[in-house]
Design a protein around this nucleic acid. Structure first.
Lengths: 227, 227
DNA sequence: AAAGAATCGAACCAATCAGTTCGATTTGAC
DNA sequence: GTCAAATCGAACTGATTGGTTCGATTCTTT
């Protein structure tokens, strides 16, 4: 899966091999760990299983990672970094909010509902009680960051007079939640075992945008600030 | 905490004490288990801890519950039953959708974001991979049921001509998600350690309703069915 | 008060797991 | 080819856990 290595850097300058820091082997371990952690959860994942899944000796495991928790944290950080990149590159700068939002919606919902992201979500939420820092960090650099991105885009649209929004951050989160209505929650609870199709996603995203524009589009009852 | 017992049934007809089925003791155990499971997660919760937290001998634990998993499942089912009742009694039959929805929104969001519900959510999601049936059951009798309730109410409003909705189930989920925008997700990830205040909830619910009515209220661009 | 059941409590068992150790083996630079 | 470093692999440690057992204790009913 991760066969394709980035040619530019190759493996680095090495007169000799270094401590326990071969990036390929490291990735290899993280890949194995990903499999085991996502399919068993944090506690039920044994270091033996991980070593086996990664085709690596247990000793080597501990050369590359201090202990189970550090391995897990590093893994989760890698995953949320992937999410981050995905989200950033998904928001293209279209000047038409409907087009931009619907494209972004499809991309991000597709990503969020992927096997991997869902599993990672589950694991992080599952340990959030015992590892609050990890939970917060994951949230802030994942979902929250996505919302911020959209909020910034909305700010621009408001400045250009294309939308009328009071609280753009709230609006961003609302939009993201609408895009996932009906789709993500059952996946989190494992009540639906396969990701939604693009058709399903597009339908929900379409409805989300219809709702969004009805409220925030030019010529809507701008801010009745319901009291 | 569970001092108040329901007087009506008392403990039942007893010539002699029965096997391992004293409802009070059973509750006592479940209460202890709740504490431990929610504060440590399923795996990290040890039966010793639970016995201690419940002021019960470990032996008795196994008289009342077959094993750890059964205990956990029974506990979760009790919790979702509580949720269920809460949700049902929260939806009062007001003929004005704005009033009914805002009241229901406040109630259910308050409940969902309570310490207990959040913890239960986390634990269930955390084990959903290994115990799919539990996850599905919890989802169907919790969140999904709430959505169904609202959907039925919306059906009625549509029939009475007060709202114009095509897919009432989707609309119901949208509404529930909007009511939780900004609030529930950070709680799940433990990025926010205390439930939101009623003021915060009311603000978000208000915005949710504004959005909802902008889209589905009488005199909105009914169904542009965005293509 | 006496019997009988439920409960306690504390030890116990087998299994598992995180983490360590160490000699044998591979690998890569020279 | 040589040599040193990295890795393997397989056993080992110490601690914990789920679950069991059983005699001592506490209730409750008669």
């Amino acid at each position: 899966m991760s066969e394709t290595s980035e040619a530019p850097v190759k493996t680095g300058p090495r007169n000799r091999r270094i401590a326990g820091a071969d990036p390929d082997k490291r990735r290899q371990i993280l890949d194995g760990a990903l499999q085991v952690f996502t399919s068993r959860g944090f506690d039920a994942a044994s270091m033996n299983d991980i070593a086996a899944a990664a085709n690596v000796s247990k000793g080597t495991l501990y050369v590359y990672f201090e202990d189970k928790e550090h391995l897990f944290v590093d893994l989760i950080q890698r995953e949320r970094e992937i999410q981050k990149r995905g989200a950033i590159e998904a928001l293209n700068e279209d000047s038409d909010p409907v087009r931009a939002l619907s494209r972004f919606g499809l991309c991000i919902v597709r990503m969020i509902n992927g096997e991997l992201a869902v599993s990672a979500h589950r694991v992080v939420i599952g340990v959030a009680e015992r590892m609050p820092d990890l939970g917060r960090e994951f949230y802030e650099n994942g979902p929250m960051l996505g919302s911020r991105l959209i909020a910034r885009y909305l700010d621009r649209m408001v400045a250009e007079g294309k939308l009328a929004i009071d609280d753009t951050y709230l609006a961003a989160v609302q939009f993201l939640d609408l895009c996932q209505s009906t789709l993500t929650r059952p996946r989190l609870f494992n009540a639906v075992r396969t990701p939604p199709s693009d058709e399903e996603i597009n339908r929900v995203v379409g409805e989300a945008i219809a709702m969004f524009m009805a409220r925030y589009g030019r010529g809507a009852g701008a801010e009745p600030a319901p009291r």
